[in-house]
Design a protein around this nucleic acid. Sequence first.
RNA 1: GCCUGGGUAGCUCAGCUGGUUAGAGCGCAACAUUCAUAACGUUGAGGUUCGAGGGUUCGAGCCCCUCCCCAGGCACCA
Length: 504
Amino acid sequence: MPDKFYITTAIAYVNGEPHIGYALELLYADVLARYHRMRDEDVFFATGTDEHGAKIFQAAERAKTDPQAFTNKISARFRLLADVLNISNDDFVRTTEARHVVASQELWRRAAMNGKIYKKRYSGLYCVGCEAFKTEKELVDGKCPDHNTVPEHLEDENYFFKLTDYKDALQKLFAFRPDFVTPSGRLNEVKEWVKNLEDVSISRSIRQLSWGIPVPNDPSQVMYVWFDALTNYLTAAGFPDERYKQHWPADVHVIGKEISRFHAVLWPAMLMAAGVEVPHQVAVHGHISADGRKMSKTLGNVIDPFALVEKFGVEPVRYFLLREVPFNSDGDYSDARMRERYAGDLANGVGNLVSRVLAMIEKYENGVVPAVAKAVVESTWLAYEEHIKAHDFHLALADVWDVIGSADKLVTEREPWVLAKTDKAELSKLLYVLAETIRHIALMLWPFMPETAENILARLGVSTELGKEPLSELQTWGLLKPGTKVSKGEPLFPRLQQPTTNNQ
RNA sequence: GCCUGGGUAGCUCAGCUGGUUAGAGCGCAACAUUCAUAACGUUGAGGUUCGAGGGUUCGAGCCCCUCCCCAGGCACCA
């Protein structure tokens, strides 16, 4: 039996159009999913949309539609984004689906049965505009700073989760499994938070908010969004059907740093409360800015992932984001940088290498891969795999480009055009080495740029069905059969037109 | 205010447990070359020496102290 590998992204909150940050998260997860598939593991990759909560209810009201119709529309946009980016997800969970309601209520029921959920009456200052209670500290001159209104005293009753019961268990979890949260800096952050825990409110009375999943046996309450949102990872696996254990526990939850608290603290505690195994790892990635500035609607510098793909193509966009934005830190997008990467790495780099080598095979070998020889790609594979395991995707790509660079250098040094006149046997050996090197480059590229990789393999006359054979097989040097017919084809990455000068 | 991570060539960043003339890619310049998408290769310029100041050491970009700047976190906001 192959190892199983269950990976998720955070589900996207559908109060607006997809943001490039979500595209980035999909890509990180996709690289891991594809890499593990390439290793012939039983991969299950889920993503989806988070559709409950006050923000969505309000957004729907502003759009003069009901919440379900509203989320149907936006959720479809996120699904389309995954499609456009060629994300290899196996499931797409919407938190408004029946199966998710079942899963959330069951998780709640189990936690409640274990005595970890209790009802508490409390009063406080409630701002109608925010649909939330405010603390004295948050108020300015006794008014809500967002709505400039005086909050009313309101008494309410909500369900609370006994998060405080899990302080020790969480601390043990972090100590026992230091890679539960990566990178390590994020784990340290989480450890700090856990020092001071309080029980959390996990429901809203329907007077406050009706758009949510009903609390089991209490029609007056709906679940607080996070309680239901986190449960999506179980929903995708098939919970509460016992078969969910085929996938569960999740191997990696890929999330953004803004929500690490919920995933690293609340989520494992919820699972423990319900007697469900906790995930193996929460991998926290950074954010992407635009032209050096934080993206925001007011600045008007939000990058639309659809427009970007429209402009440069999926594969260049995938390449850029994965190359330029390190998983473990932040990165920046700019058109200028995108064009640099495109011209330097794609057009002049892979594109040109494939082009020159295949052209020579066509010219000197009647288009047939010659026999013999061996070179060294092995050390790169080692580095590459280490980097992927450490989520240093940008470095894995740098490894691939090192190989491209050395192949280019080899061509210059050995001068095949001279060998064509002086030593046909040597020429054949050289071109075989180059062709085989390109095969390896294509394999390394596959998790990042699947279409490009498959395209290159097709040109080499190699089967493109990756995942059929384990990577360890495909990695062996010399798999490319002599006598295979190649075809150079059109440039992989044709040069971009100069940008029009009036838009940055 | 507190905490974390940063501040190294025009730009993006590497620099292992402190050790000779601080590196890479991109960009720029020159040279070379023709298989290739005017791509590839070689060489060079470019750091007042590594945010500022002080200290430890035979020796610090890397250790200690103070300060400045940037990004992020500091519980119900997804």
